[in-house]
Write a protein that binds this DNA or RNA. Structure first.
Length: 200
DNA sequence: CGGCCGATCCACT
DNA sequence: GTGGATCGGCCGA
């Protein structure tokens, strides 16, 4: 297992990064507990020219400022007043690209994730849906801005990080489609920016 | 300062 | 398949 380096996130093609994040491992450590799993669904948000992006038209506000950080930073925001949604910022500083993590196959710390979900056992839908991904990993919108390239050096430190676990996804296993919940974005809603691993 | 709305989820029909 | 929850962010006045 190898922590994804800064160089992975600094690249220009956010759509390619979204595709490559499939099969990578996402971990968190909060309250001394490590939880995580394999990323199975992502969406790319291509910054100032993408009308589905919060940074469309170079909108720079207190909330979106984190999207203008260098790649490898966490962008977490509150959606519908209820759900924290976790995104990976990509590209260089001042270019506000991001990838939304929509689904995760739970692997590490299952018990803690079930407890956060308030479920007695893993059922259908455990780990699917961006609100639920953040919830089971213990990610809250107050965690926006965290550095994703550093694995905590001790069990008492909080952290969010990604690793390459060596899982190889064949192109034929990837389903490409349009993004969810962005109907307001006009023609950009039709862009093929959603990627997921075919159910086995 | 007020009003509208959202990169969602769940219970209920 | 549908509607309600729920509240910070954003924009216009």
């Amino acid at each position: 297992m190898k922590v994804l380096p800064r160089s992975f996130y600094l690249r220009e093609d956010v759509v390619a990064i979204a595709r490559e994040l499939l099969g990578k491992c996402l971990f968190t450590q909060f309250d001394g507990r490590i939880t995580g799993g394999i990323i199975t669904e992502t969406e790319a948000y291509a910054g100032v020219t993408d009308s589905a992006s919060h940074a469309y038209g170079n909108r720079r506000t207190q909330r979106t400022e984190v999207m203008y950080s260098q790649g490898g930073t966490a962008y977490v925001y509150l959606c519908y007043g209820v759900h924290s949604l976790f995104n990976v910022v990509t590209n260089m500083k001042d270019v506000p690209h991001a990838v939304l993590i929509r689904a995760l196959k739970p692997v590490t710390g299952i018990h803690a994730m079930l407890r956060r979900a308030g479920k007695p056992a893993a059922g259908k839908g455990f780990g699917t849906g961006p609100g639920k991904v953040a919830k089971i990993l213990g990610i809250h919108y107050s965690h926006t801005g965290m550095d994703l390239t550093v694995k905590p050096s001790s069990g008492s430190m909080p952290g969010i990080w990604l690793e390459d676990g060596g899982v190889r996804i064949r192109p034929g296993e990837i389903i490409t489609g349009t993004r969810i919940g962005v109907e307001y974005a006009g023609k950009d809603a039709l862009l093929p920016y959603r990627f997921r691993i075919m159910a086995t």
